[in-house]
Design a protein around this nucleic acid. Structure first.
Length: 561
RNA sequence: UGGGGCGUAGCCAAGCGGUAAGGCAUCGGCCUUUGGAGCCGACAUGCGCAGGUUCGAAUCCUGCCGCCCCAGCCA
């Protein structure tokens, strides 16, 4: 995804791989994997991991597997595996025929477990969950051995087999690795390998009633797939000794686990538990709500795969816990859309303008450039007539300094149209401005010599009788606080929701937009980038989602004033 | 009071003993029929702190300090 540079420099993971290649540890092979648990939708943090794993494989001419980590049937669903596949593909990555499931290996894992039991390295424990916790000790005190720890091999074999057969109720027994109850690393204090769960699994159905834990399944799955570099997040650092212990005891292929810092972004929550909560509580309109940091939400919002990949490249890979400024993500999408989105005119908060000296029935087709960044995008035509709409905040009766837009007696240019002058402000009984009466200068039509006259500002507009009504959804960040997890006593992260994260407006947009297709990206000139929503709206009546505003230096100036 | 990690600008991040890359943000200026885009410039005598080694230290050593993770039969 990145470039063809020699992968000699770069982040610390590449440095580790380079060292392996130098010493020949994996015969110069690089094989990674992306291992999602199908218990929720993918979010942008996963995108970072996807770009990393698939990106590294590509860069080193290796492969990257997709493997669902489906060891907990109580939380996993096919809906999630489907969405995960769709999102990875959409991001632009391809796992070819390497779509695997940890559940594919249940039988092999079972055999491995028997091998450990026979070697005296695992035992069936009858302690309850609560007792196991008590026996584990604390951070500063050693644990104590389970009374079942020294059970004879034959008895363990028998009990384990009966666990599989379903003779015991949930939670009554576990298979545990026999390591060291006094280990300073709690993960090494006889970790549970299997628990009894009489639950229906989305792939294996009712074949199993014992399920492997993450620690037992993950490393062995990596090994079975001949993974070389098993990249995961920081919280698994403490698990690496256990990961290593299992493959060493088994004497099987030993991948290298490498941990990096997960992605955090200001004003966003990134935990699946919290995202699930937003969905379940109806705070948002599903996993793909355009305010969600999910891949599907970003897609609906108007983010492009290229912009997300670019973002993943720019945030870097390191072990320092960090929180990326949301502005970087916005920068990435603006940069992509600036180059590719077609320009169009749409008025979000319409104010009527009547050109009193413009012929009553006349309509002119004005030629407009589709994308000044890309001449090949061509031009289109936009109807112009006597009655127009302009943006309400493009007019001020009593303008402050540096306001370059329309005001009584002032001139302004209508993009691709004429220079107009404000002659009269029409108000209703309550003093609200309802209409502007302006005159146009016929010598200043776009393209004419007189049109080059200097005027302070250029406004976008739409012809009143030709305009298409369209619903536009204006989004802001879902949370009002930079760190949504920073909450007052007794409250949770939902107390930090931004009440203005969504506002609906009825806009007037240029008629060409009647043909806009779901997912299409546009720049509404001077306002921002908008994408046709894929869930709401109908053919001929599109609904637009605001992806991101344009950079707004006027907003900055007026804020300071 | 155990173990594992991490501290370079407002936010990320290079740097790997030879005198602090780059990006985002911010601030100036130029340009502009989008207050967009683009272009030019500014932005760490300083690398958590204190000592030490060295001709030379963000890089090596020692000691502190701060932050994160671990006591699920979640992943």
């Amino acid at each position: 995804m990145t470039n063809n540079d020699t992968p000699s420099q770069g982040n610390f993971i590449k440095q580790i791989i380079n060292e392996h290649n130098r010493t020949g540890r994996f015969d110069n092979r690089v094989h990674t994997r992306f291992p999602p648990e199908p218990n929720g939708y993918l979010h942008i943090g996963h995108a970072k991991s996807i770009c990393l794993n698939f990106g590294i494989a590509e860069e080193y001419d290796g492969k990257c597997n997709l493997r669902f980590d489906d060891t907990n049937p109580t939380k996993e669903e096919v809906e999630y595996v489907d969405s995960i596949k769709e999102d990875i593909r959409w991001l632009g990555f391809d796992w070819e025929d390497r779509e695997f499931y940890a559940s594919d290996y249940f039988e092999m894992l079972y055999e491995y477990a028997i091998k450990l039991i026979k070697g005296g390295k695992a035992y069936v424990c009858e302690l309850t969950a609560e007792q196991i916790r008590e026996y584990r000790g604390t951070l500063t005190e050693a644990g104590k051995n389970s009374p079942f720890r020294d059970r004879p091999v034959d008895e363990n074999l028998d009990l384990f087999e009966r666990m599989r057969r379903g003779e015991f109720p949930d939670g009554s027994r576990t298979l545990r690795a026999k390591i060291d109850m006094a280990a300073p690393n709690l993960n090494m204090r006889d970790p549970v390998m299997y628990r009894i769960l009489h639950a229906h699994h989305h792939r294996t159905g009712d074949d199993w009633c014992i399920y492997p834990t993450y620690d037992w399944a993950h490393g062995q799955s990596d090994s079975i797939e001949s993974i070389t570099h098993s990249i995961c997040t920081l919280e698994f650092e403490d698990h690496r000794p256990l990961y290593d212990w299992f493959v060493e005891q088994l004497g099987i292929h030993h991948p290298q686990q490498i941990e990096f810092a997960r992605l955090n972004i200001t004003y966003m929550v990134m935990s699946k538990r919290k995202l699930l909560r937003l969905v379940q509580d109806g705070v948002v309109d599903g996993w793909d709500d355009p305010r969600m940091p999910t891949i599907s939400g970003l897609r609906r919002r108007g983010y492009t795969p290229a912009s997300i990949r670019d973002f993943a490249d720019r945030v870097g890979v390191a072990k320092k816990e960090s929180t990326i400024d949301m502005a970087l993500l916005e920068h990435c999408i603006r940069e992509d859309l600036n180059a590719h989105a077609l320009r169009v005119m749409g008025v979000l908060d319409p104010l009527k303008v009547v050109l009193t000296n413009y012929p009553e029935e006349q309509v002119e087709e004005m030629e407009a450039v589709n994308n000044p960044e890309d001449p090949s995008a061509g031009t289109r035509t936009v109807p112009f007539s006597r009655e127009l709409y302009i943006e309400r905040d493009d007019f001020m009766e009593d303008p402050p300094r540096k306001f370059f837009r329309l005001a009584p007696g002032r001139e302004v240019r209508l993009r691709y149209g004429y220079i107009i002058k404000c002659e009269d402000v029409i108000k209703d009984g309550d003093g609200n401005i309802v209409e502007l009466h302006c005159t146009y200068d016929p010598q200043t039509k776009s393209g004419m010599p007189e049109a080059n006259r200097k005027v302070k500002g250029t406004l976008h507009w739409v012809s009143a009788k030709h305009a298409l009504d369209a619903e536009v959804r204006l989004y802001e960040q879902l949370f009002a606080k930079e760190d949504p997890n920073e909450v007052e006593e007794q409250l949770d992260f939902l107390s930090n929701l931004n009440p203005d994260s969504l506002s609906l407006v009825q806009a007037k947009v240029e008629p060409s937009l009647a043909a806009a297709e779901p997912g299409a990206h546009y720049q509404f000139e001077r306002k921002g980038y908008f994408t046709v929503d894929s869930k709401y709206g109908r053919p001929g009546a599109p609904v637009f989602n605001r992806t991101v505003t344009l950079r707004d230096t006027w907003a900055k100036i007026s804020r300071k004033q």
